[in-house]
């Protein structure tokens, strides 16, 4: 590991003077924001905005979306700062900027706190303080409740912590509508119930990685069989829940078709994960469920975006 700060210590006199210079490149700081997660947040938040057909200025909507993205990035940065020790022992995360020695933990903390405060304040100024409060709650929930508390103490970590990942559509609706409506709450519920089968499918594949890091993921605590049962249970609930936007009138014909086909696909894979428990086929099908779950959520939200953002909405009822 290389030193993350270039320090010079003056040993000739007291007190000791230490000058630190960052070693991180711009791309390292960008990586601290978890860009892929940020993309998902922007995407789900954008859908949370368009389903309510906001009447506010597009510039204000854009600025709000930008602040939600930065807030999400800030919480990812604070998560990386706190989890640097376990990131270093997991193959999936050991190349992140802090364990790789490219950025000092203190820099990441300062960067994350600055972006957190900045994004909340600017969101409050450009939209409203309900949205800003919800963004602050999301950041605190992810960085403190999930990262610092739940992640290392309970196998329900990603179930409860999943609320942070599900909140962006709610924040977005609050930003453009000034209130929290049932549209964004349904989107919240879909992401929230989608999270356990998504992450537990990954945890089944990477269970040795999580065990080495000492993270009590469900397969390591309750065992793979119990995890498979719970994946199936959540998916049985998720598939019909995915159709809730149709029942509430903001999911059209295209959405109904995608949600039905995607839900059946999720169910089929969850049943396969439940049945195949040994060897390479079991790992392969868990990996397939993990990958398909991403596609499933993406398609649900992309269809809503197409229906409401591009005028393709055709009502299912009437």
């Amino acid at each position: 590991m290389t030193s993350a700060s270039n320090s010079l210590t003056d040993t000739r006199s007291e007190p000791t003077v230490t000058v630190g210079l960052s070693q991180g490149d711009v791309s390292d700081f960008f990586a601290l924001l978890k860009p892929r997660v940020m993309f998902l947040v922007v995407f789900t938040a954008l859908v949370g905005m368009v389903v309510v057909h906001p009447t506010i200025h597009p510039v204000v909507a854009f600025a709000s979306l930008l602040m939600i993205a930065i807030g999400a990035g800030a919480s990812g940065c604070l998560n990386m700062w706190w989890d640097a020790d376990i990131d270093a022992v997991m193959t999936r995360t050991r190349k992140r900027p802090i364990p790789a020695g490219k950025i000092a933990p203190g820099e990441a903390l300062a960067f994350g706190l600055t972006l957190s405060a900045g994004s909340v304040i600017v969101l409050g100024l450009v939209s409203n303080w309900l949205a800003a409060g919800l963004l602050a709650f999301t950041i605190v929930f992810y960085a403190v409740i999930y990262s610092m508390w739940l992640k290392r103490t309970t196998p329900q970590n990603i179930v409860i912590g999943g609320a942070a990942g599900a909140l962006p559509p709610v924040v977005a609706q609050a930003a453009v509508a000034g209130h929290v409506g049932w549209e964004s709450l349904i989107l919240f519920a879909i992401i929230f119930i989608w999270t356990p089968p998504h992450f537990w499918a990954l945890a089944l594949v990477k269970s040795s990685d999580y065990a080495r890091a000492g993270i009590p993921m469900m397969p390591n605590v309750a065992g793979p069989d119990s995890t498979r049962r719970q994946i199936l249970a959540y998916t049985v609930f998720l598939a019909p829940l995915g159709l809730a936007p149709v029942a509430f009138g903001f999911g059209g014909l295209a959405y109904a078709a995608i949600a039905t086909i995607g839900g059946l696909g999720m169910l089929a894979l969850a049943v396969q994960v439940y049945r195949l428990r040994e060897g390479e086929p079991a790992m392969r099908v868990a990996q397939q469920l993990f990958a398909f779950s991403i596609l499933y959520l993406f398609l649900l939200f992309a269809t809503l975006l197409a229906e409401h953002g591009f005028g393709l909405f055709r009502p299912v009822f009437g």
């Binding site: 270039n6 320090s7 010079l8 003077v17 000058v19 210079l21 960052s22 070693q23 991180g24 490149d25 711009v26 700081f29």
Partner: peptide, 22 residues
């Protein structure tokens, strides 16, 4: 003179410049 900056390699100088530009 009291707080001399550490010697920077050319790569470190480039990184610092990129950070400043960003």
């Amino acid at each position: 003179e009291q707080n001399p900056l550490p010697h920077l390699t050319p790569e470190e100088q480039k990184r610092r410049r990129r950070r400043s530009v960003a």
